[in-house]
Design a protein around this nucleic acid. Sequence first.
DNA 1: CTTGACCTTGACGCTGCGTCAAGGTTGCAC
DNA 2: GTGCAACCTTGACGCAGCGTCAAGGTCAAG
Lengths: 259, 259
Amino acid sequence: MLTISQLAAYAGVTVRAVRHYHAKGLLPEPERDHSGYRRYDAAAVVRLIRIRTLAEAGVPLSRVQELLDADDTAFAAAIAEIDQRLRAEIRERERHRKRIAMLAAGDSLALPPEAVTYLEALREAGVSDEMVDAERDAWILVAAQLPERMLFYMEMKSQQLDDPRVRELYRDLTQVVRWEADDPRLDDVADRLAAEFETVPEDAWDSGALPDDLADLLDAVFLDSVPGARRILRRLEKHGWTGWTNIRPTQPASPAVRR
Amino acid sequence: MLTISQLAAYAGVTVRAVRHYHAKGLLPEPERDHSGYRRYDAAAVVRLIRIRTLAEAGVPLSRVQELLDADDTAFAAAIAEIDQRLRAEIRERERHRKRIAMLAAGDSLALPPEAVTYLEALREAGVSDEMVDAERDAWILVAAQLPERMLFYMEMKSQQLDDPRVRELYRDLTQVVRWEADDPRLDDVADRLAAEFETVPEDAWDSGALPDDLADLLDAVFLDSVPGARRILRRLEKHGWTGWTNIRPTQPASPAVRR
DNA sequence: CTTGACCTTGACGCTGCGTCAAGGTTGCAC
DNA sequence: GTGCAACCTTGACGCAGCGTCAAGGTCAAG
């Protein structure tokens, strides 16, 4: 008769694993000797080796039982299913590998490469680090909601950046975001912005627009992080512009007809 | 300001996951509103998206923290390590797949193919199912301890089975294992066995011998499962044979010298 | 006022054991 | 006989990453 550690050694598992299999009902509890020790016969070794074989093949313990006393057909079916699961787990890990490879390649988390390129262009245009970071965070939010539109947005933004006046505007804004909330120069900035917006054709506003809730979120970021934001927005309203992320002309007062 | 479910929705995770990240310290607990609800700003969304991005890439939560504020070098190193782990997990699953494929192919668990072949040969030689099962269990024990020697053993056994007299012996034993412990015919069987053993050259016994502890275990199986086992062994001893699994001639009485 | 959708904390469940803890047993050396 | 190491026992927590009740408080709309 064998003690639990001998049994475990024969089957190549730990004592703890044997007790675990008892607890799970995979291996029947054997007789105890006079001092309460478990005593095993050789049949237990065989059963334990079978359990270990299945477990090492990736069979979940909850299914080992049924596999041990399945007939050939059921066994084959169960095996096929387990193989399916293993394949899925492998595919998942391979997806993970690809993702972390991309993380290692790009300089920023959670952004597609075209966004990384755009942010790089911003930096090269002389925009300060902190503003690039703010832009990056904003685009992370967008990319999380609309990954499939990022390429479009980034191409649009990159084109805008080709215009030297836009680049200058960005550089100037780098200073503006540090001004106090009541700095009177904010109004001048808003006036310049409004003048700039006038040059954009009327129908171009909607094409690059973001969903309202996302725009609200990004507006909130702007308002939270830039002291002068509120003053700029108020001044822009006076010029007939509303919003920020989705900036557009205030609706001409065409009275809505009710009923 | 966002509620926890809005935050979760923006980042594409569950509310439970957000709370879990709070508990793990990955995401700082935000301010509470007057009724104790958590209120988040957009920065939290960005941080949460970063966490999710890393987690989805297979980074363990315990390492997300350090990765979020690692510099490029440290980040690359950590990524490389995680990729290592993912590859190891993939290899493990592929090993599992191979193992279960083998389980599906062979008709028996925990035995190498040559053993399956041998058992098949036994069955075809007319040995009863229950005796084949007993043989199989015995070889499962051997295979677990000495997998590298199984090919050798199975070739040896297969060769023995080429001898028609051995095959007949096996067939006869099929009956014998069912006899009562005190069946007098057991002695005749032991006599026949002894006569058979005599034909084996003296030096052949050790070549196929198993380690003593394993032989003891298999002997125990024999004694446990065959009622007449003890009587056969006693009778064999009288003929000068000892053991069963590792049967061999009793040592000629060469008196041991003490001190 | 009611209802349904959210919010809160707390706690158990899942997988397969590893790892104490606290105590009893066995077997061997002295 | 005694001591010590190496076993054995049950019980319980820990691990990863949340899912899923439970039991209650809150909010907004009808």
